[in-house]
Write a protein that binds this DNA or RNA. Sequence first.
DNA 1: GATCTGCCTTGAAACGATTCAAACAACGGA
DNA 2: TCCGTTGTTTGAATCGTTTCAAGGCAGATC
Lengths: 360, 360
Amino acid sequence: MSGKVEMVTMRDVAQASGFSPATVSIVLNNAPLARYIAPATKKRIEDAARKLGYRPNAMARFLRSRRSQTVGVMIFDITDPFCTPVLRGIENALYQSSYVPIFADAHNQRSRFERYLEMLLEHHVEALIVVANWLFVDIQLLADLSKRNITAATIGWEVPGDSVSSVMVDNEAGGRLALEHLYHLGHRKIAVIRGPKMLIDSGPRWKGVQKFAHSVSLELDPSLVAQLPDELEANSGFEGGYRFTEELLERKKKFTAVLAFDDLTALGAIRALTKAGIKVPEQCSVVGFDDVPLSALAAPSLTTVRQPLEAMGNLAASTVVEGIKAGLEKRDWSISRHKMPPELVIRDSTKAVPAAATMG
Amino acid sequence: MSGKVEMVTMRDVAQASGFSPATVSIVLNNAPLARYIAPATKKRIEDAARKLGYRPNAMARFLRSRRSQTVGVMIFDITDPFCTPVLRGIENALYQSSYVPIFADAHNQRSRFERYLEMLLEHHVEALIVVANWLFVDIQLLADLSKRNITAATIGWEVPGDSVSSVMVDNEAGGRLALEHLYHLGHRKIAVIRGPKMLIDSGPRWKGVQKFAHSVSLELDPSLVAQLPDELEANSGFEGGYRFTEELLERKKKFTAVLAFDDLTALGAIRALTKAGIKVPEQCSVVGFDDVPLSALAAPSLTTVRQPLEAMGNLAASTVVEGIKAGLEKRDWSISRHKMPPELVIRDSTKAVPAAATMG
DNA sequence: GATCTGCCTTGAAACGATTCAAACAACGGA
DNA sequence: TCCGTTGTTTGAATCGTTTCAAGGCAGATC
């Protein structure tokens, strides 16, 4: 209860057990040489370590072995509800492999991203996972990492070249799923809110929508289609969805459904509809994209195209851990590019189109 | 573009600049001795470092100086929307001081908490911030940390004794604020959903509610008061709020407002009311607590008692950084216990009680 | 010319682990 | 007795910094 606890070092364990530090190291790490160590020796060393409460010093270990047991996790904006499940997935996978995540939040700022990258490199992370949803393109990143052979993976984003693994949702399939759902419910006049140009997701999703429309000869009225502006604010989608929907209503456009770029946009659209006295889903259906956690809690709960966010985080982390292992064992290893299948989650914000459209 | 980049060490900088590693270290760290170094020398060393792209090796530095530039951030469950803003606040403050957060998510499991604590100690974090909202009480934690003199702070929680700083909201004042608001809107028949016993917040909030009720001679009908069960699931509050409200309605209880333990509970209550055809806020007001990010997006947007979550994270982080500094300079330093003032945020889920109550 | 004073700069010892080549002990066979 | 073998254990170097007592070198003082 009084003075500081002196750190217990390997030397202490060696002394206590009567063997040399070398032997202790070999036993405690179960290094290859451990197979030559007498069982009795192992036991005595392990007992001593336990008794003294020995904890290896991660830093000292690193210095010799080049292993920091640390992975950098760079998030573009933790405030975005998209990130939380992804982070959970990453954390969980790393935990299984006894890696510790160093958390970096870029706040959507490039300068912050770079400074954090610098810090992560100083801490010699063994791998880097970047959760981003737009084009942070950074050649420096690519060069720095692959040269220092730090395995890296991105989530929701892809880096050109073949040095970084990636995990994404199949956006095109997702776009298709969303429109297909509305179409099968009988909707024909559908407003579409496309994502900002700067987001990599926007293009493919829209393509999926168009392709499906084409396949069933559905004409998408261009005056019902809008594109969200490029914005860095985390919740700007909500605003955007709200404004565009409001505008459509003011212009007295007719539509029975809104296909929104993502869940926040959908929520914004719903807010505008509700405010104008239009009931969702009775008078107008709304479908989102992502299935962020709050979508299930919203009122009405949101029909959406689900990205398996936690699984994506998990996969990315497992991938880099695999990459680290391969590097250690000097095995060959090539990056992977995963496209996860999206899944339609039907909740309360969509409904079959009423026999007679009630909106004007 | 070919082989790996060899690490640039301080020795390389020394060689390139024509000085010794000692001098380089002194200059690059701007150590006390730096005031004796000739300006020209400094410049040459700094130039060389820049040119070679020298990056200090955090591990090696630690080994000598005992400073890992690392702070452990233990979160009880990142899935809880409460945590995100807090995490943001912590991250931001640490970033300002060039500390890097090591992220640990206990998933509400004690075993995981302990394992992570172990890992954080191995990585020699210079401080620990624990975001928890219930009694994880752990004597081990206390002993281990203060003995190894690692400064620690908790958020939303307090540790007995005087070794750990804490930042909390003033729950009692918050409870008061919530009821006061409803009362001033004219509500008299108010259902109250108290928090789970295991949460430290529950008691004081309820106490605040009671005190205010007493001060205005308002009688709280015990049959309109429920307590959420002890549950570890992150979103269990929603379920709880839903179920209790549903039950009240089934029992045909009369009330014009619900005072919920937290935002999720409030959202659950709203869901139940809406499902029963009762309009919020026209027929029934609902007030939450916390002001988690999704409260503003919910429909109707939620009136709630705001905890300054980001500020709380920020404060906790600044506090431990201060503690680290004090320790380094062998200054005296005593822990602090902050109680942040809550703030009523009026949105769309509350309204003056109608002249004639319409509910049965 | 010896000694003293500042100024700058540096040698060398840590820090706590890992890693091999090498040492050691014991034993059987020649 | 000597050698080789087998089965265990270890000495000593090393990783990249930091730190501080000590060193070198002008110029000033006696």
